[in-house]
């Protein structure tokens, strides 16, 4: 029980470009939160601020009740070495997989536990095989990324993040770079994780997935949270015009007939 992630008044600017303009968000343990919004609305940036791939310009982030960074003269300071433990507790999966091409699937998954957590080799091998099996790739332990399909590569990337046994998983448009016929296998993996109680924040354009998996849907618009609520509230009966416009733009999105 309890909240895994709390974000308060989060701002992020890149030079003159003000991308996040005061985000407040909480994620409870076991929740799957889906972020939707047009490109450029700040979804990915928000995700990258949560594991400090980007350093927020202002605002605070709490993970498991602990504030990240140190308060000093009204500014929050983030030291690189203090962010490393944060990243080991927060897994991230990217749009372009970013597997390490010089390593096999097993080595990719072992790398974090071995190099960062410094577990024994045997433990790491066991862990790698366990998580690869979990994403349905027991037959690909020794395959190099170049010999895997996009969907398989992305599942290896998911296993790589899971092998750190994180408390929170972040998924950044993980199906956007995939051929349409490969999207399903990755979404199924995500769905399984959600049903097992993994806490996750998912940025996606797959509204059908959002509808069936999310505990909470958050609609971002121009760096602010425009509307949030249950999938039903946001995707079926949005109260805001902007949300409705956004949903209408997703012509491929069909709700099950029974919902109407």
């Amino acid at each position: 029980m309890g909240e895994v992630l709390r974000v308060e008044n989060l701002h992020k600017s890149f030079g003159p470009n003000h991308v996040l303009k005061g985000i407040d968000l909480t994620v409870e343990k076991g929740q799957a939160v889906v972020l939707i919004g047009a490109s450029g609305s700040g979804k990915s940036t928000l995700l990258r601020c949560v594991n400090f791939m980007e350093i927020p310009s202002d605002g605070r982030v709490w993970l498991n009740g602990e504030a990240v960074g140190r308060e000093r003269n009204g500014k929050t300071e983030y030291r690189e070495h203090s962010l490393i433990p944060i990243r080991t507790h927060v897994g991230m999966v990217f749009q372009h997989f970013n597997l390490f091409p010089h390593m096999t699937a097993r080595q990719n998954v072992m790398e974090g536990p071995r190099t960062v957590l410094r577990l024994t080799r045997a433990t790491c091998v066991k862990r790698a095989e366990k998580y690869l099996a979990k994403v349905g790739l027991s037959d690909k332990f020794d395959a190099y990324p170049a010999h895997l399909s996009g969907g398989q590569q992305q599942r290896v990337a998911i296993a790589r993040a899971l092998a750190m046994e994180p408390q929170l998983m972040l998924f950044d448009e993980v199906t956007s770079a995939l051929d349409p016929e490969l999207v399903g296998e990755v979404l199924r993996t995500l769905k399984d994780l959600a049903s097992e109680g993994m806490t996750m924040v998912v940025v996606t354009h797959e509204l059908g997935f959002a509808y069936s998996v999310a505990d909470k849907v958050v609609f971002l618009h121009e760096g602010r949270i425009h509307e949030q609520g249950t999938p039903d509230e946001i995707l079926v009966r949005p109260s805001q015009t902007r949300t409705r416009d956004f949903l209408r733009g997703h012509a491929t999105f069909r709700l099950p007939e029974a919902q109407f």
């Binding site: 594991n51 791939m53 690189e80 070495h81 490393i84 433990p85 990243r87 080991t88 897994g91 991230m92 990217f94 372009h96 997989f97 970013n98 597997l99 390490f100 091409p101 010089h102 790398e111 974090g112 190099t115 960062v116 957590l117 990337a157 790589r160 993040a161 750190m164």
Partner: peptide, 26 residues
């Protein structure tokens, strides 16, 4: 590619680990 640094950083590697284990070998 930038993504290699990102992926290494995201699993908690320090700069020197990213360099030694991921970037330099490639």
């Amino acid at each position: 590619e930038r993504g290699q640094w990102d992926a290494a950083k995201a699993i908690g590697m320090s700069y020197s680990q990213q360099m030694r284990r991921i970037i330099l070998p490639q």
